[in-house]
Design a binder for these strands. Structure first.
Length: 529
RNA sequence: GACCCCAUCGUCUAGAGGCCUAGGACACCGGGUUUUCAUCCCGGCAACACGGGUUCGACUCCCGUUGGGGUCACCA
């Protein structure tokens, strides 16, 4: 059977890094298995969903190169279908209308009492819970409400679904059995009746649990007595996430659900919903969270780490994709830099880590620096040109000159945004870091040496070999160790201690600018302070 | 609090009982190449959370503790 996976974001804001990582893993899995990667826009939250968010989402996916199959499914278009399914669930007894709290009547999905058609429910063993005598036990179609006894002997009010208490028997403070559920359960489930029991001390029951096998975490399970029937239709008649999500997964024939492990609690309920709807639950794979520097998962409330910010800060889509894939997954060999094809070929869910991963911006940057030099010259020039346009000096640069600068800088650029620091190639007046000026220019003999370099440059052809030679001549003549003058020269001409090769920089800057800056250095910088 | 999940260098990870004196990468610190910058090369620092089992043998399996995270909505 062909695998079908989906990415199902709700368009309520920017796409954050954890979200997009889920998309990446789904996409990789689909492409690896030759299946389909579907996009479903879960826009049922009308209050918060916006079309701008959808537009942005599509743009982000496209930027990262995550191409999806078929047209996106908008969940809001399926409202009628969702409601229809809730009705059929009510009809066959898997759901029921219920007056809950202040609002009107909602529809609740019933954690199944009768598990015959629910292969994901199994018996565990008999269990007993001590009850607080001050709080009566109430039992009705909605479930059980009771109070456990805390360590300090205080009542801990608890509500559970009825299904958690097969073979339930309740004892009073005299250890006498005062209630058995099995004989009356049909009546209770049929509705209306509420049983209330006072002076209780203990209850015993057969514990059952829902379980499923997770491709990443292995077998996961949760006891039914720790679960409650859940709202699937609001009092205003609109379906909630659980219903819509599961119904649409059925509709789209999703075979594998790959999502964050913050959904595990939901999955216990969703597998039952699938079965109630007459469908086999898909295979699940719960990804560990990506956590921020504070060790917390990125959330919608996190002001940072949106995918768009990485793009805006000069990261390459390929580098981001590569890096994010390595967060929580590894190919099992000492291999990190992989292109799309290699990632797709190697990606399997069983190699996904089950513990959370922390984003390391250093490593991303390093990865980016591996990709930039490989970029086609024209592409690189185009990208950095866009960055530079917003700089005061970058509006109307000569395109040939800019290209020459970009070519020189490409191999030492780790982020497109670093092109903002190229101002010294274009500005008339450049700024100097006082610290470096003091360290490299305000030393004995430097002014004289720079003066000589200026003179020497003036009298030779302005070409790479002769420029280099001119500088060497000065160091030789003044008996300065070779290379010793390069740093002062660099500071004098660019203001900063790092950049491209100094000879190439001189050539690009041109004789006039070089001589002017040398003069400035000699007359102002070397002497001041 | 209850339930669920997780646990190897600072970070990402390799490791499916003996290949482990625990490997790689980023970061950091040295050194070399580049007569300069970046790249590159070499080296260093640095981890199996703790306690019990199981076993001839445990980073690997089991239990417990501790710590971290998630969920407990008519939000998705």
């Amino acid at each position: 059977m062909q695998t079908r996976v989906r990415f199902a974001p709700s368009p309520t804001g920017q796409v954050h890094i954890g979200n997009i990582r889920t998309a990446i893993f789904n996409w990789l899995y689909a492409r690896h298995t030759g299946g389909k990667f579907l996009l479903r826009i879960e826009d049922t939250d009308r209050e918060r969903s916006t079309s701008e968010a959808v537009t942005q989402l599509l743009a982000e996916l496209s930027w990262l190169g995550l191409d999806f199959d078929d047209t996106p499914l908008y969940q809001s278009s399926r409202l009628a279908e969702h409601v229809e399914h809730s009705k059929s669930l009510v009809d066959c007894g898997h759901a029921y209308p219920y007056k809950k709290g202040e609002g009107g009547e909602v529809v609740l999905f019933r954690i199944p009492w009768n598990a015959d058609s629910f292969p994901n429910i199994r018996d565990c063993q008999s269990a007993s819970i001590a009850l607080h005598p001050d709080v009566p036990v109430r039992i009705n179609a909605n479930g059980l409400s009771y109070a456990q006894v805390s360590k300090k002997g205080k009542p801990m009010p608890t509500e559970s679904c009825l299904a958690g208490f097969r073979e339930l028997e309740i004892y009073d403070t005299d250890r006498a059995k005062i209630f058995s559920l099995e004989p009356v359960v049909d009546e209770i489930l049929a509705g209306g009746q509420t049983v209330s029991l006072e002076n209780v001390s203990e209850m015993t029951f057969l514990r059952r649990e829902v379980y499923f096998n997770d491709l990443i975490k292995g077998e996961l399970s949760k006891p039914l007595d720790s679960m409650k029937d859940l709202v699937i239709v609001r009092s205003d008649g609109t379906p909630v996430f659980h219903l819509a999500n599961v119904v649409d997964d059925c509709h789209q024939n999703i075979t594998h659900i790959i999502r964050g492990d913050d959904h595990i609690e939901n999955t216990y309920r969703h597998v039952l919903l699938f079965q109630a709807l007459g469908a086999a639950p898909p295979t699940y794979a719960h990804l560990p969270m990506i956590i921020n520097a504070q060790g917390k998962p990125y959330s919608k409330r996190d002001g940072d780490a949106y995918l768009g910010e990485f793009r805006d800060n000069g990261y390459l889509a390929d580098a981001v994709l590569n890096y994010l894939t390595l967060l929580g997954w590894s190919p099992g060999e000492d291999l990190e830099k992989m292109n799309r094809g290699e990632l797709i070929e190697r990606f399997t869910l069983d190699r996904v880590q089950s513990s959370p991963a922390q984003m390391d911006i250093n490593k991303l940057q390093h990865m980016n620096g591996l990709y930039i030099p490989e970029l086609g010259e024209a592409d690189f020039i185009q990208e950095v040109r866009a960055v530079v346009k917003n700089e005061p000096w970058g509006k109307d640069v000569d395109s040939n000159y800019f290209s020459a600068v970009a070519r020189l800088m490409q191999s030492r650029t780790k982020l497109y945004s670093q092109a903002k620091e190229w101002g010294y190639f274009f500005e008339e007046d450049i700024s100097f870091d006082e610290k470096f000026v003091r360290k490299h220019l305000q030393k004995p003999g430097i002014a004289e040496a720079l003066l000589e370099i200026g003179e020497s440059l003036r009298s030779t052809p302005f070409e790479l070999p002769s420029i280099e030679q001119a500088i060497h001549d000065v160091t030789d003549k003044r008996d300065i160790k070779q290379g010793k003058l390069n740093m002062p020269l660099r500071i004098a001409l660019t203001g900063v201690p790092t950049g491209a090769g100094i000879y190439e920089i001189i050539l690009l800057l041109g004789e006039e600018t070089v001589l002017r800056r040398l003069n400035h250095a000699i007359t102002v910088l070397c002497t001041s302070g």
